[in-house]
Amino acid sequence: MAIHPEHELHARRRGRNVAMGLILGGLVAMIFAVSIVKLSQPQNEDIYAPNYLPATGASE
């Protein structure tokens, strides 16, 4: 019996699958964007990082 790569179900659910793919892609993009924002916010732990900002008010 031949295996049909394209089942009738695929055609029927094309709209759903495309929308689902776009949403998952959007979720990945959003998590990536939030990661970039969170990682580039000023921090005072890694002095070699470009976003290093010494803690204010803390006296040595």
């Binding site: 959003m30 964007a33 939030v34 970039i36 924002v37 969170k38 916010q41």
Partner: peptide, 11 residues
């Protein structure tokens, strides 16, 4: 709030 975090949170 940073706009990216605002959009993500509202979502």
């Amino acid at each position: 709030v940073h706009p990216v975090i605002a959009i993500a949170s509202i979502l």
